[in-house]
Write a protein that binds this DNA or RNA. Structure first.
Lengths: 243, 243
DNA sequence: CGGAAAGTTGACATTCGTCAATTTGTGTGG
DNA sequence: CCACACAAATTGACGAATGTCAACTTTCCG
């Protein structure tokens, strides 16, 4: 089964797996499901009995505030465990929506319980994945609090570029970017009008090329510098500026 | 040993422990350490071999951005596992600093590894604690993105009040509040001047009484309403408005 | 081809940050 | 107990960042 490969590869970059551990993951009985753009993978308030891993496409997590405002609290790329926390935390505090057509693997929670019971090293890897997810949230919090729109958006592009590269989703110097300017605004806590203007500035400065849902970064080191982006929190292994 | 009691009580509110599980936690060999105000419990960039649980006092987590800005990404009250993630994610992406004089229990990572190996149910509780921490981060992200200063600060007070109550740290209708207005600003992504003005408005509106490091909330339901605060994300059991 | 969604633009209002000065509070040494 | 130093809180004036509203244009998709 190939579907969990991007996820397993991500774990394996962090820690070598034994053949038996690898087999355990490979044989996780998963249901593979296809979603159209903007379909719900999980719904806030519910307590699903499975967690989802993105196989292809993108997804985000949406928090709905009391007065109806929509805030995106995460974006996910292939290989990401979108809602591992739903295994332990009920009910869900947010929904998961596809950002593009997507293929998603659903892992039954009782299989995760089996891992907890029998595979302490895999369990630790699951905790690592949760911790990494939380580290990304913290970085976003810091960026939202301290940086103006221009650099905040630049930061988002840097992060997504590196995560998509790790997920082997790059073509040329770019990747499919299904988010609308409204989405980017909801991610960064900005209005779509302001996103539009900041984006134009990023284009004018030659830092990004974004057209027809495809994002290119002609000079990553320059964008990283403009964003004051520090990739440490992503816990990637290689030098982030190298191709 | 009494020191882990607030933490164990927090877990037990979520799931009943067997006597044996309780004993395992009770007997965790922990080093208890006293910190003065604004001392470092853990330092960004390092890979500590233990994780910290707050026993008394408050602590926060501080993220330092590339250009020197300081953003607080969490506040912790007694019973909180401040850096459980340092067990799996190295190096630390942020520091932990006491917000007041504090007593902190340090749990060696190899004891956590022992739990992962032998106690799947306790392991799941640790994951629950991590997931709750992440849920709080997400709520903050949403509030930072969508709410103006006044309600953002009101939201912070609601959250802290409920968490302090759960930690049995209330006296009268309030609790010790060691954060300066600068701290609140660094927490919410605001300048201290603006915090000052918003705070004055909250006082004028009769929603909070904050003096000499003690915070009182005379009418919690009214503050909750003003903040548009939805306590679901804290996963408390009781009705949040009841005393 | 038509309609809806996304992107773009301009004008204007609001929130919030910065700077600088002042006041208040707090802890320490004498 | 007082004097001083230093941190925190407060205030006013001003400017920068961002939101809102409303129109218009372009793109996308059936």
């Amino acid at each position: 089964m190939m579907t969990l490969d991007p996820f397993i590869a991500k774990l394996e970059r962090h820690q070598q797996l034994t053949p038996e551990e690898r087999a355990t993951l490979d044989q996780l009985p998963t249901r593979l499901r296809e979603f159209r753009k903007h379909e719900s993978v999980a719904v806030a308030g519910e307590s699903p009995s499975h967690s989802a891993i993105v196989v292809t496409g993108m997804a985000f997590r949406v928090k709905q505030l009391l007065e109806g405002e929509r805030q995106l609290v995460a974006v996910h790329v292939p290989g990401d465990f979108v809602d591992l926390h739903s295994f332990v935390l009920h009910p869900l505090d947010h929904s998961v929506i596809t950002a593009s057509p997507a293929l998603v693997a659903l892992i039954p929670h009782d299989k995760l319980a089996m891992i907890l019971k029998n595979h302490p090293r895999l369990t630790k890897l699951l905790m690592w994945d949760m911790a990494l997810d939380a580290a990304i949230s913290r970085e976003w919090m810091a960026i939202m609090g301290k940086r103006e729109a221009y650099r905040q958006i630049a930061h988002l592009f840097c992060e997504l570029y590196l995560r998509m590269r790790q997920a082997k989703q790059l073509r040329n110097d770019g990747f499919d970017f299904p988010l609308s300017q409204i989405d980017v605004g909801d991610l960064c806590g900005l209005s779509s009008v302001h996103v539009n203007r900041s984006l134009q500035q990023l284009r004018t400065d030659g830092l990004v090329i974004l057209e027809k849902g495809f994002l290119q970064i002609p000079d990553l080191p320059r964008l990283i510098k403009a964003a004051a982006f520090d990739p440490a929190y992503l816990h990637l292994l290689a030098d982030p500026t190298e191709i």
